[in-house]
Simulated scan of single mutants.
Amino acid sequence: MVEHRMVDVNGVRLHIAEQGDGPLVVLLHGFPESWHSWHRQFGPLAEAGFRVVAPDQRGYGRSDRPDAVEAYTILHLVGDVVGLIRALGEEKAYVVGHDWGAPVAWHTALLRPDLVRGVAGLSVPPPFRGTQPPLAAMEKMFDGRFYWNYFNRPGVADAEFAENPRTTLRKFFYWASGDSPDAGTGKQPLVDPERGWLATMPDPQALPEWFGEEDLDALTESFAKGFTGALNWYRNLDRNWELTAPWHGAVVSTPALYIYGDRDVVPAFPGTPELIERLPALMPDLRREPLKLAGCGHWTQQERPDEVNAALIDFLRGC
């Protein structure tokens, strides 16, 4: 059974869900999600002999939401994972992340390999720091219409998404799923700065089979206090680029696994397909070729739980 409690980490209180005994596996969710994104992984991983813990990361769900934008840098987020491992009484952990949780997982392995037994990323590939700040690069490439730049406008996306959180989340999950008509087309996520993003997203008459009304209920509840904390992660993209300068050119050396869907919008971002092709040569301990799931959109572990669980268990046991 999944149990819930609060843990004090680095001056913030994090809500965590946990199940099982054995080596610690930390599961990190993305945007706009919560610990619930991993609810199909808890039972299988616990039954396979692991202690599974999924936090609501800072800015999300029942966890604290610092007011300052600069309290959401990649160093804060990695610090939360490091602090959580210690607070749980462990010396090492496997770290698995999806969407924004993937960069946190990859950077935890990059910055603190001494604490990481193995790292897995879903959707977002390992971080290889570019030559220019990402927000500035996307601003130039897409004339300010890339969704990162839209999110960077203080208060704008916050207000749009908070007007009706349930509708926001329903549209997001359908739009980025493998069920969406735009999935797999390579179309970039651009936003009309005047109309906002949701206006261009279809509102499905019925939810996909893998994402029911109870899932939407749980997700909606986690955003009852708004979206600002979650959006502040994006507002640190250029700051993260500055802060990670000492690791420019560094690679993740711990055992690694990468999984993504062939209908996911993220692996189609500029330069990402080429990066994925090169991962086996770039990653010294990538345990298998990147696992591409046919017909799968962005919500990897929710859309394809059986395949993801099997790949994760095989990876974790082999580290």
Score class of each variant (00 low, 15 high):
Leu115Asp: 04
Leu115Arg: 12
Val116Tyr: 01
Gly118Leu: 02
Ala120Glu: 03
Ala120Ile: 04
Pro125Ile: 05
Pro125Tyr: 11
Pro126Gln: 12
Pro127Asp: 05
Pro127Asn: 09
Gly130Asp: 10
Gly130Leu: 04
Gly130Pro: 03
Gln132Arg: 15
Gln132Lys: 13
Pro133Ile: 14
Ala136Thr: 15
Ala136Gln: 14
Ala137Tyr: 14
Ala137Thr: 15
Glu139Met: 10
Met141Lys: 12
Phe142His: 13
Asp143Asn: 15
Gly144Val: 04
Arg145Thr: 08
Arg145Gln: 12
Phe146His: 15
Phe151Tyr: 10
Arg153Pro: 06
Pro154Met: 11
Gly155Trp: 03
Val156His: 01
Asp158Gln: 12
Asp158Glu: 15
Asp158Asn: 14
Asp158Cys: 08
Asp158Tyr: 02
Ala159Asp: 14
Ala159Met: 10
Glu160Ser: 06
Phe161Val: 12
Phe161Ser: 05
Asn164Phe: 05
Asn164His: 13
Pro165Gly: 03
Pro165Ile: 09
Thr167Val: 13
Thr167Met: 09
Thr168Gly: 04
Thr168Asn: 08
Leu169Asn: 03
Phe173Ile: 01
Ala176Asp: 02
Asp179Ile: 01
Pro181Thr: 12
Asp182Met: 11
Ala183Val: 11
Gly184Ser: 09
Gly186His: 03
Gly186Tyr: 05
Lys187Gly: 05
Gln188Trp: 08
Pro189Phe: 04
Pro193Asp: 13
Glu194Asp: 14
Arg195Tyr: 00
Arg195Ile: 03
Gly196Ile: 10
Gly196Arg: 09
Ala199Phe: 01
Ala199Asn: 15
Pro202Met: 12
Asp203Asn: 15
Pro204Leu: 06
Ala206Met: 10
Ala206Trp: 04
Pro208Ile: 09
Pro208Tyr: 02
Glu209Gln: 12
Glu209Cys: 03
Trp210Phe: 05
Trp210Asn: 06
Glu213Tyr: 08
Glu214Leu: 11
Asp215Pro: 13
Asp217Arg: 13
Thr220Gln: 06
Thr220Asp: 02
Ser222Asp: 10
Phe223Ser: 00
Ala224Tyr: 10
Ala224Ser: 13
Lys225Ala: 14
Gly229Ala: 07
